[in-house]
Computed example of a mutant assay.
Amino acid sequence: MRTRLIPRLDIKGPNLIKGINLEGLRVIGAPQDYARKYYEQGADELLYVDVVASLYGRNSLHDIVRRAAQDVFVPLTVTGGLRSVDDVRDMLRAGADKVGINTAATKRPELISEVARKFGSQCMVLSIEAKRVASGRWEAYTDNGREPTGMDVVEWAQRGVELGAGEILLTSVDQEGTREGFDLALLAAVAGVVPVPVIASGGMGQPQDAVKAVREGRADAVAMADILHYNRSTLGDIRTAALAAGVGVRTQ
């Protein structure tokens, strides 16, 4: 099974932004320019995250996704502010291939089943923002890592898959933007109990971190932002490092 390399594009309004621990957001540039660049570098998918959608109660990425779908020909996953089957339908019509749901699913878990039944489980990605609360224990958060849910991450991941989620987007709030590597224990804990792909997100600082996410964290895909946005590595560099370590990735 090949490991997917997925650039993560956090969006606020019309801008691509980046933060640390999902806070202190800095404007990077125009999302379309970066999407095209990563597509040309051989991205397997693109992940769009509306980071303020929960605050405003809606996702505002339709135009950005519509433009991307016209000249980026890899799967697009969109997450943030999607609260209903109608919201999901609108985003798919705009050009998304998959949708990630976090806040609305924690408040009404049956939404996972509704989306999976209507559009297929492969379309329904359960997005989990995890914060470490003790050794070997993590709590699920919403609203860009600000709101605690009281839910155990591993138990929630299991339940989400039982309800129909076909994939888990697992973001470590503790590691996000730190360049210190993924939370490998978190990844392994979730990957060890769910039969669906797990996307590692939060903390990638160097190409070797992708290798560790797969080898030690048992991730099926790796999402990355800072390392690409600031030109510290290209997707080609990361692909080369993965292949050298024996991790299967798509070659261009």
Rank of each mutant, 00 (worst) to 15 (best):
A213T: 12
R89W: 10
T142G: 03
A225Y: 04
R89K: 12
V125F: 05
I28P: 04
L82T: 07
R132F: 02
E167T: 09
G160T: 04
R58W: 01
V198D: 09
I64V: 13
T3L: 15
L25N: 05
P7G: 11
M1N: 14
F73L: 02
E45T: 01
S135I: 10
L235F: 06
E147I: 06
Y39V: 05
A219Q: 08
V52H: 07
P207D: 00
M224E: 08
V173E: 04
L47E: 07
R137M: 06
N144W: 03
V133D: 04
V74C: 04
E176D: 15
S201T: 08
Q41S: 13
P207N: 03
P31Q: 14
V211I: 11
R36S: 12
D152K: 09
E147M: 08
N15L: 06
A53N: 10
Q70W: 05
H62L: 02
D86L: 07
L22D: 01
F182D: 03
P109V: 11
R66C: 12
R179Y: 02
V49M: 05
E155K: 15
L170K: 09
P75A: 06
T79K: 04
G145E: 11
T77C: 08
D50V: 05
V51Y: 02
I6G: 14
L25D: 09
R232Q: 12
E180G: 01
H229P: 01
P7M: 13
G100A: 12
R108F: 10
V196K: 04
R2C: 08
K107M: 03
L16E: 12
G95C: 05
A244T: 09
E162D: 08
V115E: 06
R250W: 15
G248L: 07
A188E: 14
A225M: 05
T103E: 13
R36E: 15
E155V: 09
T77V: 14
R67C: 10
A116C: 10
L92V: 13
G202F: 05
I101G: 00
L169S: 07
N59I: 03
T77A: 09
G57F: 01
V249H: 06
A200C: 00
A140E: 05
G29A: 10
